[in-house]
Computed example of a mutant assay.
Amino acid sequence: MEIQGKIKLIDETKTFGNNGFRKRELVITTEEQYPQHIMIEFVQDKCDLLNNYTVGQDVKISINLRGREWTNPQGEVKYFNSIQGWRIEAIQEDNTTGQMPPVPPMEAFAPADDINEEEHDDLPF
């Protein structure tokens, strides 16, 4: 899955436990009618992917949805979801999308007064 938006926050890398588990969180704001602030976590070696990005940048992030079950000390079963990022790329905003450039208004063109109707070109059609 992929999600696109503007980076709102990039947190520092945090290390947990004796095994050195690393996690870094990023928040993006989607650009739709009702923008959403989505927190995406990057874990272990994927934390370093965020080093080259800054707040305000438009990005596309490849994500996986993760879910887990946990039983609390009282015996109640709880479920948790997370969104994990595994790839991130900047979205370039350029005008190379194949669109024609805008046409200047008619007033920008001078009238052609020097047309000679009797001159013919030598094209065969």
Rank of each mutant, 00 (worst) to 15 (best):
V103D: 06
A108C: 01
T15F: 05
P104L: 07
E25C: 07
I28G: 03
G5E: 07
D48A: 14
E69Q: 15
D113F: 05
P111K: 03
K23N: 03
P73S: 05
Q92D: 13
P102W: 01
T97Y: 07
F109R: 03
T54R: 11
N51I: 08
D122Q: 11
R68W: 15
M1R: 04
K46R: 13
V43Y: 02
E31Y: 00
P102A: 05
F21H: 06
Q84G: 10
T15A: 03
Q74G: 06
N18L: 07
P35A: 05
I61P: 06
L9D: 12
K46P: 00
V103E: 09
K14E: 08
R66G: 14
T96L: 13
F80N: 12
G56A: 02
Q99T: 04
D11P: 00
K6W: 00
T13G: 04
P35R: 05
D121Q: 09
F42A: 02
D121K: 11
K8D: 13
I10F: 08
F125C: 13
V43F: 06
N64K: 15
E32H: 03
D45M: 04
P111T: 06
D45K: 13
N64T: 10
Y53S: 03
D48T: 09
E31Q: 06
T97R: 10
M106T: 08
Q84D: 15
G75M: 09
Q36M: 11
P35D: 10
I83N: 11
W86N: 14
F16N: 01
I115G: 03
I28Y: 05
S62Y: 03
F16T: 04
Q99P: 01
E12T: 01
N19T: 13
V77A: 09
P124Y: 11
I7S: 07
P124I: 09
I88P: 11
V43D: 08
Q36L: 13
P104E: 04
Q44F: 02
K14P: 01
E25N: 13
Q84V: 09
R68I: 06
T29G: 12
I83E: 09
E12H: 04
S82I: 10
D45F: 05
E93F: 10
I3H: 05
N116I: 02
E119D: 13
I91M: 03
G67Q: 15
K60F: 00
P101M: 03
Y79V: 11
P73E: 11
P102Y: 00
I10H: 11
A90P: 07
K23M: 09
K8N: 11
E76A: 11
N81M: 14
N64Q: 15
D114L: 08
E119C: 00
T71C: 09
D121R: 12
N64G: 14
M1D: 05
A110N: 03
D114S: 08
A108W: 01
E12V: 03
R66Q: 15
R22P: 00
N95M: 07
N52Q: 14
G20W: 00
N81T: 12
L26H: 02
G75A: 07
K6G: 00
I28M: 05
V77S: 09
G5Y: 04
N95G: 06
Y53M: 03
Q4A: 12
I10K: 12
V77Q: 10
K60M: 13
Q36H: 07
M106N: 05
Q33W: 08
T54V: 04
Q44A: 13
I91P: 01
V103L: 12
R87N: 15
